[in-house]
Write a protein that binds this DNA or RNA. Structure first.
Lengths: 250, 250
DNA sequence: ACAACATATATGCCTATCGAATCTAAGTCA
DNA sequence: TGACTTAGATTCGATAGGCATATATGTTGT
């Protein structure tokens, strides 16, 4: 991360044209949301392309400033609705990023959230302002470090500010939470097969899981129940469809 | 929590005398630290008595406002040093509390941290501005809810603002982290017996642990090594003293 | 010196759980 | 009809945790 002292203005012409930043005695507070989903065996995150400086042309997590009369959770939910048209999704506060130089304009704290959504709920059409980047997890380990994104064509999508750090922490949190809470179904439709749930877990963890152990463990939690229905049109024996019971809302 | 709209001033005389609060378009940002330690089989937290309104006479976590040129981590470390004389202790960001009405004066975000310290490091003398409250965990469960504090004499120490919520989340986080990382030794001196480490774990978790399993599990991590020394003056067979290896710094 | 006592440390056994292999069930497709 | 694919059940061995017990090593009292 570039070193820059607070109060030291960026005097490039583009900056001065785009912003009339003023120093305050309080930081601005933004909420940024990592909207994460699973698609075809990889993690994806929703991104917006920055049209203005700073970091013009690079990609950023959708976010905005907290209004003075709304809570942080409410701001995150509002931004989810405004930027992605999403309501009633799994949303959790992640961490607050507060390096004084993380935004070159003025001091901006970012209260980061992450959301887990079913890929089918996402508007991936061209009319949406959101793009989706494949999350590029470098080492198959703890992933405490920054995480980059790539387009479907494999091009790098450079992330603005410290958003690669936010994304890295989001992946780490989701992985950790998967070990002791069944949050995987937040990424799936209302009914799903055990295999698709395992696929989601494997994608998040970045490693394969034992099929039988996974099945036993999931059924032992008592959090999911068989619907009696089966998937159809699959070219082989169809699997039973399950749903999550009510109290699965963590 | 009392409902109060932002911008609606508290017009009680005491408030007006104590504060000349002004509304801004940005929230103030405070850092509050739950300094947690283990003492005689219970958890303790460092508290300061509020001398002024709001919440005059009740107890609060040590905290203060973030300066414009310091990071959040740095602010937390500074406050630890200023308020408790502590440096080089385990410190981790916990959560950011942002209900608009959490402070009756004006909007204040609290970026909460928790610190784990050896009780022997703490200045519990009368000259210190810090008092210590026993953490009163109501139900032996997940402890997601608010947690109160009591004095050594058993008197309630009512917590100001939403600090009971902060403390509850701190206990929950510490318990969760204990399951997969050996943070317990942050509460102990440089060398310690396995029994004292188990005592610390049991105190944090609020339940007893199997001695042999605990011993096997701890030794299997490879994170601690025998010193060859033994405790002394204990009135029974002295236990071997252990220390943590370098990389134990999580 | 010696016994009584308290706790540390080691060992063996039982059981629950996980991973792997194998087998059967139930669909599609040529 | 038979090959193929994946679902789901069963079995078995390895492993780790819980529990009981035995032994080691110190202090304290007489």
């Amino acid at each position: 991360m570039a070193e820059r002292k607070i109060g030291e203005r960026n005097n490039e012409p583009e900056f001065l044209a785009a912003y009339d930043a003023t120093e305050f005695d309080r930081p601005s507070v933004a909420v940024d949301v990592a909207i994460v989903t699973v698609m075809d065996g990889h993690l994806e995150v929703a991104l917006v392309e920055r049209a203005e400086h700073p970091a013009k042309g690079s990609w950023a997590l959708p976010g905005g400033f907290v209004q003075m009369d709304e809570s942080l959770d409410r701001a995150a939910n509002r931004l989810l609705a405004e930027k992605a048209g999403l309501t009633d999704v799994y949303l959790e506060q992640l961490y607050t990023f507060g390096e004084p130089t993380r935004d070159p304009r003025t001091r901006v704290l970012s209260v980061a959230y992450y959301a887990l959504v079913d890929h089918a709920q996402l508007d991936t059409g061209a009319e949406s302002s959101l793009s989706f980047g494949r999350i590029d997890v470098p080492w198959e380990g703890e992933t405490g470090g920054p995480v980059d994104a790539r387009s479907q064509q494999g091009q790098e999508m450079p992330l603005a500010f410290d958003h690669a750090d936010i994304l890295g922490m989001a992946v780490k949190r989701i992985r950790g939470k998967l070990d002791y809470t069944p949050i995987g179904f937040q990424l799936l439709a209302a009914t799903f097969t055990l295999r698709s749930l395992q696929d989601a877990h494997e994608t998040i963890l970045g490693r394969t899981l034992n099929k039988d152990s996974f099945r036993r463990r999931m059924l032992a939690t008592g959090l999911l129940e068989a619907t009696g229905e089966r998937e159809s049109e699959v070219g082989h024996r169809p699997a039973e469809l399950y749903r999550f019971t009510k109290r699965s809302a963590i």
